[in-house]
Amino acid sequence: MSRAMEAGRTLAMGENEAAGGGRKSVDAPFGKALARLGLERANIVGLTADLGKYTDIHPFRDAHPERFFNVGMAEQNLVAVAAGLARTGKQAFATTYGVFASRRAFDFVAITLAHSNLDVKIIAGLPGLTTGYGGTHQAIEDLALMRMIPGLTIIDPMDATEIDAATVAMSDHQGPVYMRLLRGAVPVVLEPGYKFEIGKARQLRDGKDVGIISTGLMSERAIDAAALLEKRGISVAVLHVPTIKPFDAETVAAFAASVGQVVTAENHVIVGGLASLVVETLFDAGIVRKVTRIGLPDRYIECGAVPTLQQKYGLTVEAVVERIAAIS
């Protein structure tokens, strides 16, 4: 139990939001990767809507101030300005919180950006339940919303290594991308040589009884839970699906077919996101498996300390272990 929980404090912001397993971490992996890319790619520009230091783009701002634009607290304009820059040959990385990028600027992402397939990357902070500020700040349904936009690539990375690799990969990719951002001190789970490829799932652990299909920060918890379940005699495989769109249906179907039952784990509501994608995929492939969905309920989440809320809503390693033990 964290000190905040022991003290009964609701420390909503500023703690290590993504950290789960006491691993070493990297500060601002997204901003560092972008600043590095900016050295060799002169057409990269950075934008934010009054959330530069809260969305880890400050390393790019400090390294390339002439290519950094803060448009103020105006997320519709953030997307429109990024689109205009893209039309002059720039590759625009625009940061804000996921709630604003998805809910508030949706029409701009759909029409001004994606309809024209412009080279703009939306970097969305505070995904799912990584802030205690309640429904105004928790982007718990952004994957479901953004998934409906044709041609938009959607990435939910699991750790600092993957954020770095995904930043490079999305820069190599021409077209609109929405990436969920883990910010601040982000744990390092994957090895440095980890290969990220847009649209590809990666199996992180073998097993036969239960197969966890996970995305985002839940993949770290899935491998930790799998190790604990092994000690209880339950063999658990883990498939990490960092790209929500385009979805690696082939790998997901083959993985599901190789295990006794399936568990999905996502830092998102259990409707419209990863769980829905997995169920649709298995249905289309004619694979019949029991699917247990770990994620947030279809309701607004209250304010509170992140560890408290993650425990309450079943996103901690312990909660995943108990959920899987109960169905095995």
Binding site: V81, L85, R87, T88, F108, S116
Partner: peptide, 23 residues
């Protein structure tokens, strides 16, 4: 640009003007 979802044009103009100035 795609017009018609009203209120989208001027922001794109701002972005294009910024891009042209950078160049």
């Amino acid at each position: 640009v795609i017009g018609g979802s009203l209120g989208h044009g001027l922001g794109q103009g701002v972005g294009q003007a910024l891009g042209l100035r950078l160049d």
